[in-house]
């Protein structure tokens, strides 16, 4: 996989406040990278630097292996913080202006307006839009020219539940189409549903990064109990079963992880073959929030 974005030791301070400290990260083609962190952790600062509106104090980054330039920004669809448009222009006029700047064919305008369900309001002025509609227009603008990379800063901000679901569907479709997406968010659930990789920031420091399962322990665990046999025997048998790891005891129950491709039915069968009949068997959803909070403590 080719690296789309390479960040080498970027730091940024606002006066005495260190917003970002020595951030390095590589993002490859096709990855959906979530940048996760509490408010003020440096997510928007990072994206602002990557989009050349903020000047980094030290460090460098490359898009597509090249030093940042306006031509590479044209190939990136971006939402950064609030939707910014000319209030007295209509949605269509605003987007056709962006087309001119991005050197994109203006036939794209109607397509992206349809994608975000705004085609009916295409000729209304931006200032008449609700916050949710403004956010949709920003997403539409990011989709102009069908860019290979999308940089989205809290894309569901200000949307109603239906809007959130719609935007997530749009983003999921983009991931299926193989786009590289870099998404900042403080909503854990959102990141978990959409992203393949995640980087966790806290007070400008990169705490951890990598595939989302490994960072957030997002894998489901299985619990099993067999009240008819000794717990020690159960434990021994479980440890002998292929594909079982991370066995933890809680009372007479055992929590464990299964490798990908094995499920609870497999575990049940394996135990049965060893002469153990489980009295309880179930799947435990991971507590992402607890994992995340433990991470940023």
């Amino acid at each position: 996989m080719a690296a789309v974005l390479n960040i080498n030791g970027i730091s940024k301070s606002y006066g005495k406040v260190k917003a970002l400290t020595n951030l390095s990260l590589q993002i490859n083609q096709g990855e959906v990278y979530g940048i996760l962190g509490p408010n003020g952790s440096g997510k928007t600062t990072t994206l602002g630097i990557l989009l050349d509106v903020l000047n980094a104090d030290t460090g460098s980054f490359t898009w597509f292996g090249k030093a940042p330039c306006k031509e590479s920004r044209r190939k990136i669809g971006s939402i950064l913080e609030t939707p910014n448009f000319y209030p007295y222009l209509t949605a269509r006029q605003n987007l056709s202006l962006v087309c001119k700047i991005k050197h994109v064919n203006e036939t794209e305008v109607d397509r992206v307006l349809s994608v975000v369900n705004l085609i009916g309001r295409a000729d209304s002025k931006f200032k008449t839009f609700s916050l949710g509609m403004k956010q949709r227009l920003a997403l539409a603008s990011a989709l102009l020219g069908d860019p290979e990379i999308l940089v989205l800063d809290e894309p569901t901000n200000g949307l109603d539940p239906q809007g959130i679901a719609e935007v997530r569907t749009i983003i999921k479709d983009l991931t299926k189409a193989g786009k590289t997406i870099i998404m900042a968010s403080h909503i854990l659930d959102e990141v978990e549903k959409i992203c393949s990789h995640v980087a966790v920031l806290k007070s400008g420091n990169l705490l951890t990064f990598g595939p989302i399962q490994s960072v957030l322990n997002s894998q489901e665990s299985v619990f099993v109990a067999a009240n008819n046999v000794e717990t020690e025997l159960l434990k021994l048998c479980l440890s002998q079963i292929d594909g079982v790891s991370n066995i933890k005891q809680a009372g007479n129950k055992f929590f464990l992880m299964l490798v990908q491709g094995k499920d609870s039915a497999y575990l049940n069968k394996a135990l049965f073959e060893k002469g153990i009949v489980a009295t309880e068997l179930g799947i435990q959803k991971p507590d992402l929030e607890a994992n995340f909070l433990a991470l940023i403590k």
Binding site: D52, V53, K70, E71, L80, N84, F85, Y86, I101
Partner: peptide, 21 residues
């Protein structure tokens, strides 16, 4: 001033103009 208060200068740069532009 509109370009600053509407934040459209920022957006123009994000979309692919340079500050020199």
């Amino acid at each position: 001033c509109n370009e600053f208060s509407f934040k459209t200068f920022r957006q123009n740069v994000i979309d692919g103009q340079s500050k020199a532009d």
